[in-house]
Each structure stands twice: as C-alpha cells, then as structure tokens.
Design a protein around this nucleic acid. Sequence first.
DNA 1: CGACGGGACGC
DNA 2: CGACGGGACGC
Length: 471
Amino acid sequence: MEDYSSKQSVENLDNPPNSRLFLVTSRSVSDDVIREKFSVFGEVQGVWVVKDKQTKESKGISYVKFAKSSEACTAMEDMHGKCLLDGTKPIKVFIAQSRSSGRHRDVEDEELTRIFIKIPKTFTEEDLKDTFKEYGDIEYCVIIKNKTTGESKGLGYVRYHKPSQAAIAIENCDRAYRAVLAEPRSKNSSADNDYHSSGRAEHMSSDLGMNPYSFGVSDPGSYAVTDYRSSDLITRCLMVSSRASVTQEQIYGLFDLIPGMDYCEMQRDHCGLNKGHAVIRYNNLGSALYAKEKLNGFEYPPGNRLIVAHIEDGEDRTSPVGKMAMQLVAAQMMSMVWNGPTTSQQLMKMSTGYRTASPMPRVQTDVSLPSLKNLAPPDSRVKERLFVVFSPAPLPMDVLEDVFCRFGSLVEVHLVPGRNVGYMKYAEKESAGDAMAALHGKMVNGVRMKVMLADPPREPREESHKRPRTY
DNA sequence: CGACGGGACGC
DNA sequence: CGACGGGACGC
C-alpha cells in the first residue's frame, strides 16, 4: 500500500494545493535524513533532493511532498530554521510554488493564512469567529457587505495567525463553506458591480414579498387563520417557513411536541446553508393537521411568525376523507396529549431547552441503500451527471450527498436555486448509472425523485471542441 | 413535466 | 542566498 520511493507523478505534486515543501539545506543533507525528520508531521509521499546531473552531488535544494497541506504547513512552521545534522546550517522551509506557476518567489505566510468562505447571510462577524476559532487563533474576521445597505453578501474572510491553522480550517470545516485560501488582496482590482447585485436583490424581494426590512410587521392575521377553503390539501407533510433564521433543533423541538413526528429537516439553499424552511412529516394525518393548526402563525422566536402549510407527500390518496373526519382525529389528539388549551407561551417554554436524546435518522426511505462511500476528490473529472427532479421540494444538500454518494465516485451535488431540480456529478459512469437505477421514482424523506441522465451543459460560445468540458 | 453553482475585500 | 528528476504506462 505504501510506496516508499521518492518518486512523485507530476499530476500529484500540487494536489492538494500547498502540500509540497521547498527546502534549502546544507549539501550534505540526504533524502533519508529529510524523510526521517519530516515524516513526524504527516504522510510524506515523496522526498526529492535536487542533484547536479554530472557530479550527482546535492545542490542543497529539496522537495518534500505531504498528503495534506496542513501537514506541510505544520512541518514548515516547526522545521524552518532548524539544523538537520550537527554542524550544518539551519534549513529554510517554504511551501513550494506550484509546478505550473513559472515564478520562483517564496510563498509568503500572507498568502497562506487567510481563507475565503461562503456563509449564511445572517452570520455576523462574531458568528464567523465562533465557528472558525476551533481550527486556530484568528487574527480577524471580515464579512463582505454591500457598502450602501450594509447587507451581508454571504461571503467572508478569516485570517489566522499560522498557515497550518488556515489549512486545517480548509480541510476540516463543513463543505458548505466552500473554504479556499483567499487570493491576496493586492492583485485583485476589478471593480465589482454593486449596481446589478443590489438591483437584483430588490427585484426578488418585491416579487416574493420577502423584503427583509418589512420583517415582523406583516399582517398578523394573515398566517394565523386556517383557511380550509383555499387549501384542500391535507397531508402528513408540512412545510415550515420562517423569515428569521431558526435552527434544525429549534424546529425539531417545536414540532416534536406533537406526537408522531417522524421526520424534520431544514431545507438548505444551494450553498448548503440554512434558509429558514423546513419539511416536517408526521406518521399520521391528525398530528400533521394539528401541528398546522397550532403552529401556523405561531411566533417563534417572538415577533417571527412561522408559516406552516401542508405539502404533497407523494402518498396515494383516494378521495378525501373530509375535513370533519380530519378535525375529529385532531380533536382526539388534542384531548389525549394536550390536556387543555395551549398558549404560545407554554409552547415556547416547552420547546426551549428541549434536547433530543436520540437523533433522528437523517434519511428515511424505502429504498435499500448501499453503505456510505467517500466522495471523489473535488477536482475529479466528471464523467456523468444525473438530472434530478424533486417533488414537492428539493431535499437538503446533506441528505442528497448522503444518498447519492452510496453508489461511489460522487463528486458534487448541485441544486439549482429556486427550482425543484438538481445535478449529481459522478467521476464514474457506472456509479451514476447505479444511482439512477436505484433511486429513480423513489421517495426519500417524503420527497419523490426523478433521476435521469443530464443533458450536456450548454457550451459557452468560445471554442467548444478541443478538450472535453470540465463541467 | 423539470435544466445548469462558482465566490472577492473602501490600503 | 535557493526552484523542479527518474529507463515510462500495460491490457
């Protein structure tokens, strides 16, 4: 399994980025010594001492390839300035320039300590700090905001004190943050276009009635009433919408007060971040109906009215049993489990501090799924894409990753914002085919999926036929 | 029917 | 100051 040779194939030298060290040593230092001293920092995949072609003598230059950037960075921080042999000069250690970049300038800490991430728009700089401090000492956090409105653009920077800390953050933080090293500020000078982005945001706000500044002052009666005339749909599935950000635990705690909940999942947007929508499913119609009656329009947190509505659950439903029967079931529920009238305050009290002892399984489906598999590396060549249609609403990214990775070689899940569709990218056609065969027409967490081969993506109008698209 | 993420900072 | 190799696939 382990290859102890010093050879490295060219395509692995910069993979992952910043995982190779450039050493300046005494000419007397051998690759054996280097390997011995550096392997304590991680998995050394190769050591190469540059030698003179004729004399075979070391030129005092070496490269050390690690499996991970964090290992290389830690080794650099620890070994820079140390002596490898008695009586030899202290060594210099840098992250090696990527092989493809022609320049020979040292890679400086400035370029290795700041990460660039996607974050929920609701994140404050304090939230950012709290989230990313677990990977190392933070020098500062910045959220990119619209300069005129102060509104977060959902992007941020975190500067660490040491390269190893930034590398650990990139390697270990949730994939949804899409963490990468930030490009140094100096070279970037293109004026970004705030005119378009703010204009588009306003447009969407007015379209959807979602203006964030009218938050909490909407007509109090509009959500509180149960209107059976306009909504005949009665299902075991509910969609919960909240304008304020709420956590999965909060929603779970609230709706689990009503017995029979068998599924609760926050929806996420295409960044995989929390959006204030959740899908709830109960194991019986009465509980769902009762939950909607009690919690639609409920203020949680105070000032934020939840919107609760039935959504299609894909069940075969013969002619409606009738509202009277439903309400009868609900009434029975009420008398059995609720012990009298319940106020919002009581609900609040019961839900706060609620902790689930046994976490609910994230994925519920009749499909017999293979075991979890690792994802393919993010830079894998995508050989097949699946086009997936969800009904009634997209599943969260993490659920999709969980389900679709089980056939192997899943590279990425891509949900199309604002639509009930998404793409699953695979590095192997066979994996995609297996996933399609197993999952097409199937139900996961109350969501029906159509799973098909995706049409090729639309080509940009540039030269289209030299090298296959990298998707 | 149902279709394409992806980013950037007032020095 | 101190920057990029090795007998090279293999059904």
